[in-house]
Each structure stands twice: as structure tokens, then as C-alpha cells.
Simulated assay, not measured.
Amino acid sequence: MAEAAILPTTKDEDWRYADGAFLAASDPAAINHWRILEVPAGETRSEHSYHNSGDESAGSVDRLRVHVGKGGCFEAYKIIAGGKYQRIEIEVTLEEGAHFEFGGVTLGGGDKVQEFVTCTKHAHPDATSNQVVRAVQWGQSTGNFLGRIEVARDAQKTDAAQNFRAILLEKGASANTKPELEIFADDVLCAHGAAIGQLDELASYYMAARGIPPEIARKLLIQAFIGDAFEAIGDEATRERMLEQALEQLDTEAV
């Protein structure tokens, strides 16, 4: 009960890029609430979701704890597209031979703050995880990704990766990333990568030289960029639906 009464602040490392005003005005019980998901051994569970609390909303926080049984798989694909502040947090514990696949996209204009926070716990041998996050920001918005990977001493043969890339369409936009690897096993493959920049001007010039209007060229480049986050979705119809939902959120001014 005491834990539920404590509100996080931006002084807490896991909340350092959050909206401090939103946190201060929040209900402690709501902020500290976790959804719980148990994936049985050998089975697969998936979540495909689009998060847009609306431009008039102060924000929302969704926190999920997942335990994946031996040889099981949990897949999560998420889009954050609205709300002044939106945070999706996922904590996953993997048993032997289990897998976690995550693809996330933030799309924000105005002064929105949007973030994914993950903690992947490789607690047993032969587990794998892969995380791909893409951010497209304009106006004064911010896209964040805090990804932590923990590999226990007995979790040999772990294979874990996370990759974050952000495109800033306007000068006032920003992105933050904080990858963390805590590894106690010695026979592992763990990697992370991050890049923040603008649209590829050379590609835009190449497309313009072939008669493609600038606004269409930009949208095609953004489509290819965010498509990376959904590449691992096995069902083509679901993959296309997620991509279409993301593209619908691009302001005409942004492209």
C-alpha cells in the first residue's frame, strides 16, 4: 500500500524525461498500477495497440509486467500518437528459450512528450529479445526510449538487441534515448544502437529529380523509416494496418 502512495518525479532515473507537471497532478494508485500477463510455456501472446488519448488529454501511463514461460514468446507492437504526455512501460521476464519481440513508434507534434520504457530480464539460458523503436517528432515535441536489458549470471547463450532511431522534422523537436545493459553472464550476444537526425536529404533530392513531389517523397521516406518497427509482424494485414494508423497521424504541416 505504501508503494502505491508514492508518485515518481523527474528526479527518478526511469522518469527523467517524463512530464513533471503531469506526474505531480496524477493519482498515485493509477501511476503505480501494473497490468499483469502470464505467457504459458511454449505459447505465444501478442499485443498490437494504438495509443492516442487525444490532444485535450493531460496524458496517460500504461505499465505492463509479463512473464514468459519456457520456450514461449511475447510480441508487442505499439504506436503512441497523441496526448500531451503518454508513456508505455513494459517489463518482461524470460524463462529458458523464451523470446520477446517489441516494435514501437512515437509520432508527435506540438509540445507532446511520448516515451517507451522497457526492462527485459534474461533470467535463464537461451532466451532472446529484439526491440526496434522509431520516433518521428516535429514542433516542440519529444520522443523518448529508455531500454534496459538485464542478463543474470546463469543466463548463458542470451541473444538480446535493441535499436532506436529518431527523425526530427523541425528544429524545435527532440529525442532522448538511454540504453542500459547489465550483464553477469559471459557467453552472450547483446547489442544496442541509436541515431537521431533529420530526413535523408540526398534521398529526397534523388526522388525529386525523378518527378516525385516533395510532400510525397517525405511521406514515403517516413513510411519506410517507421516500417522497421513493424517488420517482424508475421501477419501482413496486421502489419499494414499498424503502418496505416501511424501514417494517419502525420500532420500535413509535418510532411
Rank of each mutant, 00 (worst) to 15 (best):
T9P: 06
D111I: 00
A209S: 15
G227R: 07
R153H: 10
D251W: 00
H124S: 06
S57W: 05
Y50S: 08
R87N: 09
Y206L: 11
L7W: 09
L220H: 10
K70I: 05
L250G: 02
T128A: 11
E244H: 13
E56F: 09
K11E: 12
A4H: 08
D186E: 11
S204K: 10
T238F: 03
Q140H: 11
R35Q: 11
G83A: 12
Q245G: 04
G197P: 03
D200W: 02
D235H: 11
C190T: 04
E89Y: 08
A166E: 12
Y77W: 14
E231L: 12
G234M: 11
S57Y: 04
V188H: 08
A18D: 07
G82Y: 05
A30E: 10
K121C: 00
W138Q: 11
G59N: 09
A98N: 01
T120H: 00
L250F: 13
Q86V: 15
S53C: 14
D235E: 15
M1V: 14
L199E: 07
A175H: 04
E56W: 13
V132H: 01
A161I: 04
G42S: 10
A217Q: 06
S129P: 02
S53P: 10
A98F: 00
K157D: 11
A4L: 15
I222L: 15
A21R: 09
V39C: 07
E101M: 08
F22H: 06
I80C: 06
A160S: 15
F74W: 13
L37G: 07
R165G: 11
D12I: 11
M207S: 03
N32I: 02
S53G: 06
V188W: 13
E182V: 09
D19A: 08
I183H: 05
I6L: 10
R65W: 01
D251C: 01
P179H: 07
I212S: 03
F164N: 08
E236R: 15
F22I: 03
F74A: 04
I167T: 13
A135C: 13
G227F: 09
G54D: 04
F184T: 07
R87G: 08
K84A: 14
A224S: 14
G54T: 07
D55E: 14
K112S: 15
D55P: 03
H48A: 05
T128C: 05
A18W: 01
E236L: 14
L7C: 09
F116A: 10
S141W: 02
V188R: 03
D251G: 08
F102Q: 01
I167S: 13
S60P: 01
K178Y: 12
Q156G: 00
V61Q: 10
W138G: 14
M1W: 10
V105R: 03
